[in-house]
């Protein structure tokens, strides 16, 4: 099929850019540890309260200024509410839902993941600056969705 010379140049340039872009995404994903939150970690949504570690939700120190935050996202809140960590703390969040699908997002950070019943989602973030970080649900979960929030205090 004949393609106009200018169109060939346009498409060649466009496709070359596309390949470079996809390679950058792929390298960042698979060799720089930037894959989106994708854990496959099954849990029975009706047995959360009896399944470790969700039988004891909360903050647990796992290293020097490193913590594991085990949280439950439910209609319409997070358990535990209001966590406090020191400045510079690295926090490994493990979150699941006993009911419907929720979101777990911290504005002005890259923390943004879906909480699906039956699965535990994981994400890690280092809080380098002090402040009160808002955690909010960004997936519609019912009539009180807009009230679903908590705060992480970094001091």
């Amino acid at each position: 099929m004949h393609i106009h010379k200018l169109e060939k140049i346009w498409l060649t340039f466009g496709i070359a850019m596309l390949i470079v872009f996809l390679v950058v995404l792929g390298v960042a994903t698979f060799s720089m540890g930037m894959a989106p939150p994708s854990h496959s970690h099954a849990i029975d949504p009706e047995q959360i309260e009896n399944t470790p570690p969700f039988d004891e939700p909360g903050l647990k120190q796992v290293g020097e200024n490193e913590y594991e935050a085990v949280m439950i996202a439910y209609t319409f809140g997070y358990k535990p509410n209001d966590l406090t960590v020191p400045v510079g703390a690295t926090v490994h969040f493990k979150v699941t839902s006993p009911d419907v699908v929720h979101g777990f997002a911290i504005p002005n950070t890259n923390v943004n993941m879906m909480i699906v019943p039956g699965e535990v989602n994981h994400i890690t973030y280092t809080f380098d600056e002090a402040g009160e970080y808002l955690v909010l649900c960004n997936e519609y979960c019912g009539g009180g969705h807009e009230f679903m929030r908590t705060v992480i205090t970094v001091q």
Binding site: L6, L25, T29, H39, M113, G118
Partner: peptide
């Protein structure tokens, strides 16, 4: 993309396929 239970490989594969529509879009613009 932000969901648990789907491995990063299959997400990335579908991302690559998603971007293939760039080609007909460029053709259309031209």
């Amino acid at each position: 993309l932000m969901e648990p239970g789907i491995s990063p490989f299959w997400k990335y594969l579908q991302v690559v396929l998603t971007f293939m529509v760039v080609i007909p879009s460029l053709m259309t613009a031209f």
